[in-house]
């Protein structure tokens, strides 16, 4: 569960002001808002990259303040999927996804058999097995986006934050992504995911709860309809 109390989010000025909001666990939430409304800023705040200007947010048992101070703890609580990552020379998709296990590894960073099994399983589910040994810089944008999701899943945290994770995906992979996210939150009771998206129709179709950003406010619609969303935007 993510709970927000009088939080002011923004860089130099307050961009979003949230009086009180609770996001129960076991759900994925779509963050909807117009360009420049502050979606990325809010997500950066949720993963502890950007400090709150005022108020407090807690992810499960920990406050954002605590998580910010302790990178090791944070890495076991929140995983993050950026909208883009640049491929790297000699870094294979498998090696990239395996980086998600880093928070769980010993001092020398060696992967155990169970870690490898986990990675292989996630790759299989996301249809990435055939690309496992391809260099990340040679993957397509969409393949890299799925790989990012795989890396976050492998990180095995209670919270996952995704910044436009579907922007480069085709229709089928968008469905796959949402299905996988929904499955992921249901696997363990404490899990919660927040992702930003412009694909309102698909989210409505899947019945995903929406967080709508509008005029510096954040509104939760647990059973959104198109009219409601459009009225807010």
């Amino acid at each position: 569960m993510i709970s927000i109390q009088h939080a002011q989010v923004g860089y130099q000025t307050t961009l979003i002001d949230i009086a009180q909001l609770a996001l129960p666990a076991g759900q994925i939430y779509a963050l909807i808002g117009r360009n420049g409304s502050g979606k990325s800023t809010l997500l950066q705040t949720l993963i502890g990259q950007l400090p709150l200007r005022a108020g407090s947010i807690s992810l499960g048992a920990f406050s954002l303040g605590e998580l910010q101070k302790n990178a090791a703890l944070r890495s076991t609580q929140v995983s993050y999927v950026a909208s883009m990552f640049a491929g790297v020379e000699a870094l294979t998709l498998h090696a990239y996804v395996s980086l998600g296990r880093v928070p769980h590894l010993g001092a020398f960073g060696r992967m155990q058999a169970t870690d490898l099994q986990f990675v292989d399983e996630v790759l299989r589910v996301l249809n990435l097995s055939d690309l496992a040994h391809k260099e990340t810089r040679k993957l397509s944008d969409g393949e890299r986006q799925l790989a990012s999701l795989a890396r976050a899943i492998v990180q095995d945290t209670p919270f996952m934050v995704l910044d436009e994770p579907a922007s480069f995906l085709d229709y089928f992979n968008r469905e796959l992504l949402l299905d996988q996210l929904q499955q992921w939150v249901q696997q363990k009771p404490e899990r919660t995911a927040v992702f930003s998206s412009h694909d309102i129709d698909l989210c409505l179709q899947k019945g995903i709860p929406m967080l709508v950003l509008h005029q510096h406010k954040l509104t939760l619609l647990t059973k959104p309809t198109k009219q409601e969303v459009m009225a807010l935007l």
Binding site: R74, S75, Y80, V88, L99, G100, P103, Q155
Partner: peptide
């Protein structure tokens, strides 16, 4: 993949 990424991985 850079400092920010490493930070997220703890």
């Amino acid at each position: 993949l850079g400092e920010a990424h490493a930070l997220q991985l703890g």
